[in-house]
């Protein structure tokens, strides 16, 4: 394992993150604050408790997940697409490193960034509502697993994309609906039965449900199923990336 190379990629990407930290943090923090004002206070005050949790508190895990998923995909896809676009990707591709070391470097940096943002949003939510965390360690695990698996998805997207339009289109057309319909703002059993069934095909549901369980000890689907869903999702991403590297897909002629 070429540890110096992984470290070099990781710290180079993190340096980029820190240089643009203000803008990368400002926008998720502001939008989260807005969600709290609109959903938490304005609408939430008219809502009943969900599973014994006030609505303002109920949306905290969902909001964090929403942001972490979107950020992971955005960071990881940009992280690999940008060097591809500039042509600087020639260097990692001609360096004595394995494809998976490249993945660890880039995906690791993207994951770190989105976890940091997730934690900042959690900290911000403490300012608005009295949040309690039933299983703090498992909460962190879920956060990490989600960040990693969605960063892998972003990495795939970044290698696949041939233009900035494509890079933006996929998150907008596919990811946003999945994530919004994943139960960030509601419990699945608030939906009509048909939609409850449809929802079960949405991977975001399992992640958000599991994450919420770590906070409130109640969940839409069982925690084991949630973990299984993350596992399957990650495995698919790994398989796709392996295939991409094996065939040189959009990287090597």
């Amino acid at each position: 394992m070429n540890l110096y190379a992984v470290r070099a990629i990781y710290s180079f990407e993190m340096a980029r993150t820190f240089r643009t930290m203000l803008q990368s943090i400002a926008s998720p923090v502001i939008s989260t604050a807005l969600y709290f004002v609109v959903f938490g206070s304005a609408i939430g005050s008219r809502m009943t408790m969900i599973d014994g949790v006030p609505y303002g508190v109920f949306i905290v895990p969902g909001l964090i997940m929403l942001t972490v998923m979107m950020q992971s995909v955005a960071n990881a896809s940009f992280g690999i697409y940008f060097p591809k676009f500039l042509g600087t990707i020639y260097e990692p591709l001609s360096a004595p490193i394995s494809p998976w070391e490249i993945v660890i470097g880039y995906v690791g940096a993207a994951t770190t960034k989105s976890i940091m943002i997730g934690l900042i949003i959690l900290a911000v939510s403490f300012l608005f509502v009295p949040v309690t965390i039933a299983h703090p360690v498992l909460m962190l695990c879920f956060l990490m697993l989600t960040a990693i698996s969605f960063s892998l998805l972003g990495f795939i997207l970044g290698i696949w994309a041939r233009s900035f339009e494509q890079l933006n289109l996929v998150p907008m057309l596919i990811l946003t609906p999945l994530v919004f319909l994943g139960g960030s703002f509601y419990s699945i059993d608030m939906l009509p039965p048909v939609w409850q069934t449809v929802t079960l095909f949405n991977p975001a549901v399992y992640l958000i449900s599991g994450f919420r369980w770590a906070f409130f000890d109640t969940a839409d689907v069982s925690i084991a199923v949630s973990l299984l869903a993350i596992g399957v999702f990650s495995a698919i991403c790994f398989a796709v990336i392996s295939w991409m590297f094996a065939t040189g897909y959009r990287l090597k002629n």
């Binding site: 070429n2 180079f12 240089r19 260097e91 490193i97």
Partner: peptide, 16 residues
Amino acid sequence: FETVFETVSLSRGLFG
């Protein structure tokens, strides 16, 4: 947006 030194250091690291 990277500096000369950072860019060259990255290359050194990539090559182990």
